[in-house]
């Protein structure tokens, strides 16, 4: 199980990287390689050239500005999990991304790779959509930004144009004291998600829901944002959450080699409720602590 030959480029700057990608010779980006390399070994993917961006300067920082997070594309998933500031300002990122594979794969897997590959099970994509983040891109013609909510188009399909490189993720400030939770089911511990639910909930001083977000993975071609505006003003009791059922009734998730679409349809509402409840409870804890 060995990959086919490829031309190898190791640029040291974003400009150099996008210039290489812009040549139109079928070059692919090699970032963490945790998804790409297995496909190359199975020879289901055989790029003529790889542009290894691991040596590109300036893409590996996590920076906070006024509560917003700027996450470089080369930030390793485990670095994001371990980042105390990110955990404080955007707890959903850690909650979601700690489910991605195992420590050794999170040590290599990158934020940019996870966004660009857009695997339907990629936890980071759900968090990015829930947090209304923006994907930062660069091509030879310059930078552009695409909201995560329109970046993901389907399984492994994104708004990324040929020759474009993901350079980072920009996550706006969250309401103070928002709670976050992420629930996932998979065949074994830390396998590809069969279904996952990412939720954030902010509460008002009286302890009622002030704002909420819910994003599900694997129930639709792309991360699926569910309209939960009906929860605002409630305390996420059974009656309030019961209204979710209607919002989820129309889902027609795809099946795959591991589980059927019917299973996903049965489990999605369960995880949705659990994630929302946990996020609500955590928001309450923040409120009490504050």
């Amino acid at each position: 199980m060995k990959p086919a030959p490829f031309e190898y480029h190791a640029p040291s700057s974003v400009a150099e990287a996008v210039a290489l990608l812009g040549r139109g010779d079928g070059a692919q980006v090699l970032a963490g390689g945790q998804s790409l390399v297995p496909l190359m070994k199975a020879r289901t993917v055989r790029p003529a050239a790889l542009v290894d961006v691991n040596g590109v300067a300036g893409l590996d920082a996590i920076e906070e500005r006024d509560g917003a997070l700027q996450i470089g594309a080369l930030v390793r998933l485990q670095a994001l999990v371990d980042h105390p500031g990110a955990a404080r300002s955007h707890p959903l990122l850690r909650e979601a991304v700690r489910h991605a594979g195992h420590l050794a794969t999170r040590h290599r897997g990158t934020v940019g790779g996870s966004l660009a590959y857009a695997a339907p099970w990629a936890e980071l994509t759900a968090a990015a959509v829930a947090l209304d983040a923006t994907v930062e891109l660069r091509s030879p013609s310059g930078p552009r930004s695409v909201p995560a909510r329109s970046f993901f188009r389907g399984p492994h399909q994104t708004a990324l144009q040929p020759g474009e490189l993901v350079t980072g993720l920009s996550v706006p400030a969250q309401p103070p004291g928002a709670g976050a939770a992420f629930h996932e089911v998979s065949a074994r511990y830390r396998d590809y998600a069969h279904v996952a639910a990412a939720a954030t909930v902010a509460v008002d001083p009286a302890g009622a829901c002030r704002a909420a977000e819910l994003v599900l993975l694997r129930v639709a071609p792309a991360p699926h944002r569910v309209d939960v505006s009906g929860l605002v003003g409630t305390r996420l009791d059974d009656a309030a959450l019961g209204a979710l059922d209607a919002a989820l009734a129309g889902l027609d998730p795809p099946g795959d080699v591991e589980v059927s679409g019917a299973h996903r349809r049965r489990v999605a509402p369960v995880l949705a409720r659990r994630a929302l409840r946990d996020a609500f409870a955590r928001a309450g804890e923040h409120r009490e602590a504050a």
Partner: peptide, 16 residues
């Protein structure tokens, strides 16, 4: 065979 890899042929891990 639809699961001719460790991705989909699941051996129990220590957490399972």
């Amino acid at each position: 065979v639809r699961n001719a890899s460790f991705e989909h042929y699941h051996l129990p891990s220590s957490m399972d």
